[in-house]
Design a protein around this nucleic acid. Sequence first.
DNA 1: GGACCGCCTTGATCTGCATCAACTCCCGGT
DNA 2: ACCGGGAGTTGATGCAGATCAAGGCGGTCC
Lengths: 245, 245
Amino acid sequence: MFELKALPVECDDRLRSTDCAGCGARMLSVCGSIEEADLGSLDALADPVTLEAGAALIRQGDAAQHVFNITAGSVRVYKLLSDGRRQIIGFLFAGDLLGLATGETYVFSAEAIEPTTACRFRKSDYRALIRDTPALEAVLLERANHELAAAQNHMLLLGRKTAIERVATFLLDQPAHDPARPSLTDHIRLPMTRSEIADYLGLTIETVSRILTRLKTMGVIRLLSPTELQVRQPERLRSLSDGGA
Amino acid sequence: MFELKALPVECDDRLRSTDCAGCGARMLSVCGSIEEADLGSLDALADPVTLEAGAALIRQGDAAQHVFNITAGSVRVYKLLSDGRRQIIGFLFAGDLLGLATGETYVFSAEAIEPTTACRFRKSDYRALIRDTPALEAVLLERANHELAAAQNHMLLLGRKTAIERVATFLLDQPAHDPARPSLTDHIRLPMTRSEIADYLGLTIETVSRILTRLKTMGVIRLLSPTELQVRQPERLRSLSDGGA
DNA sequence: GGACCGCCTTGATCTGCATCAACTCCCGGT
DNA sequence: ACCGGGAGTTGATGCAGATCAAGGCGGTCC
């Protein structure tokens, strides 16, 4: 719990060649703001990494040397108190950026929660790239502002919402579609465990579980499996999410 | 409670000339990254406003037309739930920037908590200024990242810390000096009320009050007046702030 | 196929903080 | 000097969610 060992990133980096032009996540990410012509130089900087579930990308306290671009999978970002209490700051998915908002050392940890791939950059390279690419800088600023707005919403949730309001808000925030069946917009996949949801919402595992079954008995959602559910009354859920009954 | 009326900002804007070069807050703020030579054009854009305690700079829901630079005083930034529960996102002081992290409409409110002055810019002007001033953009990005890190710390506090840990953290975060006696670094002035502290820390007025008297009886702090206190055992406070006994 | 092991659910009890309720203090107005 | 009201403190009680405890349900490894 809370190891500060300066281990290398637990990832498989045998591969050394990238193909940004053919990257399925490019348009999701900040890389989309880079000219086609400049993708070659991006390839040269990008270091593709593959992570299995549980592998660490970033450890709180380590020297902040890298920036990551998630290309597939999902990642948990969290902070720990000295006695092991954990607050998950957020979950990252394909297209999300990780590791910019830090100084000399990382002030949070990040781990894959399922098999995940990412592009790793040396921070100094990335900084140089930003300097040379005004469009990139603008996009990064915009992203940072979006993240800030999301963080503010989450502070409202953590500081003032009840358990059921937190869970309802969380469900509404999830990308609401099953990639296998894009037509069903009310299906939600939860790649994270109850423990991760709890640590994200400032609750305990048991409370998350109880609230989910409560929502089920209320007829608001249907639990298809522990990691998959269906929203049956989206309006009711929305109303629950901010205390409107 | 939670008015959405599209009122103009409640401020005195008779003055129409600014003097950025002579602004005491310039070096505290992003304006410090603008060349001396360009300050004239900044003057032309800046609209100085004076606010009395309680006056609103920004109302949640209003069209986001302005950006503010606080030059003196202090400001509370908060979000509301539909039933009136309030979460204060943060407090702003001289040099801080307000209103960039928004889209079409403001997603939070901001009010002066004591007599305050600020520079107001039209958002479109500000955007143009950013485009023309790469140095400014870099500084803004850095600021946004700092704010993000602060927001993450606050999520840890709201999600996982106990009441006494929250209050201890809050006290340590306060600028620890009395402007009148700069030598006494252990004096803290609290321009905000207990209600504001409570809404910032996700607690109630009563709990904040009880914790402060508890810290007093423990000998960790001394309460000089409701708005002024002295830290007598900074190490103990630091230890309390993250659960280390 | 059986046994183990995470993860989840459900129930019983406990507790930290919220809520409800006085009361004090300070300050500003008349 | 008095009154009124907002801000703060302190005490009594209540409750939402934590903690403690006991199974259930899949997986996976021999």
